Amino acid sequence: MAPERDGRDTRVETRERTVSGATATTRPRTRLDQPLLPRRRLLPEWDPEAFGRLSERIARFLGTGRFIVWMTVVIILWVLWNVAAPSDLRFDHYPFIFLTLMLSLQASYAAPLILLAQNRQDDRDRVNLEQDRKQNERSIADTEYLTREIAALRIGLGEVATRDWIRSELQDLVKELDGHHQDGHVVFPAEAPRGRDVDDR
């Protein structure tokens, strides 16, 4: 018994070797029932929705009068400090190059944030317009259906006998019956009495 089992095991091993080959043994098998491991990325990841909401909040703040007032106050304080303060405490002298750099930096960041907020608003408007268009199509389809139903009801009511029509027809029949009765015509002849059948016994 043992030699046969050994022979069978060697046959199975050789068959597995020939079927799998050298490439199948070196290639790692992927399990379909398990999630893949996350890949490592060199660049940091961020949530685009969170970044978009932050950009909309900043763009909304930049478009308010409060931002203009605060920016004006900061610029006035900046200029007054660099003009009236002692020379040792001044950090930006008369041409105010550092102030110009800060304002340029603020403008260079504000423009893309405003464009991003506008793009998100355009996407929302596009979705709303698509929903409105579908709602209008459904309303038009419902209106056309109701119009066809009302037209069918009108056509059907045109074929229904109304009370006035039945009254006029009955009046005509009564007149016709009165005319036949005055002429001596028997309108409804009486039925002859039926005799008793022999078979009814």
Rank of each mutant, 00 (worst) to 15 (best):
M1V: 09
A2G: 11
P3E: 09
E4Q: 11
R5L: 14
G7M: 10
G7L: 10
G7V: 05
D9T: 05
D9Q: 12
D9F: 12
T10K: 14
R11N: 04
V12W: 05
V12H: 14
T14F: 07
T14P: 01
E16H: 07
E16C: 07
V19Q: 04
V19N: 01
S20G: 02
G21E: 00
A22L: 14
T23E: 06
R27N: 00
P28Q: 10
R29V: 12
R31L: 10
L36Y: 03
L37V: 01
R39Q: 12
R41V: 03
R41N: 02
L43K: 14
W46P: 00
D47L: 07
D47K: 01
A50F: 03
S55T: 10
R57L: 07
A59M: 04
R60S: 14
R60G: 13
F61G: 11
G63T: 07
G65P: 05
R66E: 10
I68S: 11
V74N: 04
V74R: 11
I76G: 10
L77N: 09
L77S: 10
V79N: 00
A85N: 05
A85W: 06
L89A: 08
R90S: 06
D92N: 01
H93R: 15
Y94M: 14
F96M: 08
F98T: 06
T100G: 15
T100S: 15
T100A: 15
L101G: 12
L103V: 14
L105H: 11
Q106T: 11
A110R: 06
A110N: 03
A111S: 11
A111R: 09
A111Y: 11
P112R: 08
I114T: 15
I114W: 07
A117L: 02
Q118E: 10
Q121E: 13
Q121G: 14
D122R: 15
D122Y: 12
D125P: 04
R126W: 05
V127Q: 12
V127N: 03
R133L: 10
R133S: 13
K134Y: 01
R138D: 09
S139H: 12
S139N: 13
I140P: 00
A141Y: 08
A141E: 09
T143W: 13
L146Y: 13
L146E: 13
R148K: 15
E149Y: 09
A151D: 15
A152C: 02
A152E: 14
A152K: 15
I155G: 06
I155W: 07
I155T: 15
G156T: 09
G158E: 09
E159V: 09
V160Y: 04
A161Y: 13
T162V: 08
T162A: 01
D164T: 08
D164S: 12
R167S: 05
S168L: 06
E169S: 03
E169V: 03
L173H: 02
V174Q: 12
V174N: 01
E176I: 01
L177R: 05
D178P: 02
G179M: 00
H180C: 08
H181I: 02
H181A: 14
V186Y: 03
A190W: 07
E191V: 02
G195C: 00
V198I: 10
V198Y: 01
V198W: 08
D199R: 05
D199C: 04
R201S: 00
